[in-house]
Structures are given as C-alpha cells and as structure tokens.
C-alpha cells in the first residue's frame, strides 16, 4: 500500500529522492505562510519601523483580540458559513445530478445542452456581473442570503468536473445494476455516487474556498454591515494604510479567515486519497 501510483512495493532510491525533493519544495512553499503567522503575532508599531523584528520577541496576540473585539465579526463568520456552506452543498447536489445525467443518460438535445454548459465555462464573471446586479436590484435580492448564494449556483465548473468523472467510471457497473432492475436514481445514488467521492471532496473544497474568499459579488450585493461576509467585513476594518501601519493586524486577519478552510481541508482530505477506487471496482 505504500505507493499506489507506482504500484511498487517498498521504497526504492528513486522514491526517496522524490520524497526529499517534495519536502524541500514544501519548505519553500511553507516559508511565506510561516512568515504570515509570525507577522500576525507582532505589534503593528514595531513592524512599521522594523520589518525584521518579526524574527525576535516580543510576540503578542493583541491582533487576534482586536479581531474578536470587532463588533460584528461573529455575524460575519456566521454569514460566511451560511453562504459558503449552502452554496457548496447545493453545488455538489446540482453538479452530481447533472454530471450523471450528461455522462450516462440520453435525452433530446443532450449534446447541444452539454456544449452550451461547457461554453458557459468560458463566461468571465465580469461579463455577467453588472447584469446580475441589475437583475437582483429589480428582484430586491440584495442584502439577503439568497442574493449572495444564487450567483454561485450557475457556475459550470462543477458540472464539467462531475461529467468527466462519471464518464471515467466503467460502464459495466451501472449496466449490471440496471439489469438488476434498479431505478436510475438508485444506480446514481447507490452505485456511482460513492465512486465519485474524491471528485466530490475536491469540488466541495474548492467551491467552499472560492465562495469564502469571493470578494466582488459580496462587495456590491451584501452592502449592509449585517450582510457582510467575513472577507468583506475584515477588509472593511482595515485603515487606508493598513499595509504600513497595521501589517500585523492585516496578517492576523488572513490567518483568521484562512484557518477554517484549512481545517475543512484536513477533514475532507481523507476522502480524496483513500482506497475507494480499489474497493469499488473490486
């Protein structure tokens, strides 16, 4: 089980070199993040005069206390959890259903519709931003949760991804189940869906991530303080010159906003790399 990709048993010299290289590169990758965390634990005034003070004591958690003292911060966290969470769940449901439909079922205009959805992938956010804003003004959707969630549901990325993954599953599996007189939905639910778990986890994490860090739509739709997402909220607490006079505070905000996603990732990562494929195909 040591190495699925190579299919080899035990560790060869090549294996060890690859491991060393990935560890070395990981340290380079990690360095800036360690630096962000260190900066977040420093006094802002001290950093303004001397950036190198990050390498020595004193450290402080004052910046984090500052965040927690911001009157609306817990409301913003709640908003972000609701918006990103609901959007992620709905995206997984819609994309899985549609992915299965496009990959496995036949219906009139299927290919035309699939191509249309794939073309939708090419639509940049800016091409629809203004029109959506006007549409939502007309529908009075601004400053509501559905106003923040709905635009994300139209993104074709999930459908594209799930269609590809459903296609990669050997057809014999569902044809066999079909002969077993299982309903279409049952095949989808019981036989195929479990096989797409790695893709579901990937799609889930990235939907959550992009919604959590989304800036532009929440900025122009959730304009009331009570409807800020965490990203918009913490940006609003920065002064004009935050990068010079409040560097530590800025960094603590980054850690504070990024940590939940990292935790979520650690939770979901076991679904990405498991023995799921072997067990399923037998």
């Amino acid at each position: 089980m040591s190495s699925v990709s190579s299919g080899m048993v035990g560790r060869s010299a090549g294996d060890r070199i690859v491991l060393m290289l990935t560890i070395a590169m990981a340290i380079v990758m990690m360095a800036p993040i360690a630096w962000v965390v260190a900066l977040s634990l420093k006094d802002n005034k001290e950093l303004m005069t001397d950036m190198n003070s990050v390498f020595h004591v004193p450290y402080t958690i004052a910046n984090y206390i500052n965040i927690l003292a911001t009157s609306s911060v817990f409301r913003w966290i709640l908003n972000s959890v609701i918006v990103s969470g609901v959007l992620t769940i709905l995206t997984l449901v819609l994309s899985s259903l549609a992915g299965y439909g496009f990959a496995r079922l036949n219906f009139p205009f299927r290919n035309a519709l699939l191509i249309l959805v794939l073309l939708g992938l090419a639509v940049p956010e800016q091409a629809v931003l203004i029109a959506r804003h006007q549409l939502f003004s007309w529908l009075k959707f601004h400053n509501t949760y559905h106003g923040l969630i709905l635009p994300g549901l139209a993104a074709p990325f999930g459908v594209f991804l799930m269609t590809q993954y459903f296609r990669a599953i050997p057809k014999e599996l569902d044809e066999a189940a079909l002969l077993d007189n299982a309903s279409r939905f049952k095949i989808f639910w019981k036989v195929l869906l479990p096989l797409t778990l790695p893709a579901q986890a990937t799609l889930g994490i990235f939907t959550f991530l992009s919604s959590w860090n989304d800036y532009f739509w929440p900025l122009i739709s959730g304009t009331k303080k009570e409807m800020y997402t965490l990203t918009i909220g913490i940006a609003s607490t920065q002064t004009n010159f935050a990068q010079s006079e409040g560097l530590g505070f800025l960094m603590s905000q980054a850690v504070f906003a990024g940590a939940p996603i990292l935790i979520l990732y650690l939770f979901f990562q076991k679904y990405i790399v498991t023995a799921v494929s072997g067990a399923a195909v037998r």
């Binding site: 449901v93 819609l94 994309s95 259903l97 549609a98 299965y100 439909g101 496009f102 079922l105 219906f107 519709l113 249309l116 959805v117 939708g120 639509v123 091409a127 629809v128 029109a131 959506r132 549409l135 709905l150 635009p151 549901l153 139209a154 993104a155 074709p156 459908v159 279409r184 989808f188």
Partner: peptide, 18 residues
C-alpha cells in the same frame, strides 16, 4: 430531470445576464 435543476440556474443566472 437530472440536469434540469442545474440548467434552471444556468439559464437564469448566466445565460440571461450574458
């Protein structure tokens, strides 16, 4: 039916605004 829930949002929130 499998693809229509997504297509509803796709059309109203992407195609129409486009």
């Amino acid at each position: 039916l499998f693809v229509s829930p997504y297509l509803f949002f796709f059309v109203t929130l992407l195609v129409v605004p486009l």
